[in-house]
Amino acid sequence: MINIASLIGISISAIFINNFVLSRFLGLCPFFGVSKKLSSATGMGMAVIFVMAIASSFTWVINSYILEPFGISYLQTIVFILVIAALVQLVEMALQKYSPTLYEALGIYLPLITTNCAVLGVALINTGLNPLTGQPFTFIESLLNGVMSGIGFMLALILMAGLREKLELSNIPKTLDGLPISFITAGLMALAFLGFAGLNFFSSIGG
């Protein structure tokens, strides 16, 4: 039985309320590393959405049909990181062969994604309980959580890239130039996203 209310709740929560970058602090390295130009931010964002969707569905299947039935959940960390690394490699090879244009757009960002903690983060979150229903995540829910968290990441990345392109043109004190001013910008964005915390889905749907 697919719970539509839970699916909508997961989407809004993953994009806005618990935005991966701005409220959960996941995936900060690419967030500051690749947000200098709007075009590269878009490429990185697309690649992350793609990998997160695949990774969250694969790790969900492995976790619920292999790790849990055999009682070897303590191997979770090792298994998940290996699965993610292998998937990224496979996706890279498949793209190179079947879709060279997409490969050219995403190619250089794919290897970086293995060490993006957002991907492992979403896989680990999907093994816990769904805060909206209080039940373990179903396959559809965890896939959706992966895609929507990726969209949330891309949203933050693109907003940040747009702001940083403007910052390049402004006159910034020498000690704040570069990363410190980016952190302050991110802080202001996080402050704005804090406003979404008022959207209380957890009590309205769960109850």
Binding site: I181, G187, L188, A190, L191
Partner: peptide, 14 residues
Amino acid sequence: LAPGGFFTIAFVMA
């Protein structure tokens, strides 16, 4: 909360 983390590291780094 999250914004304070960003502000703190920005000023310490500066």
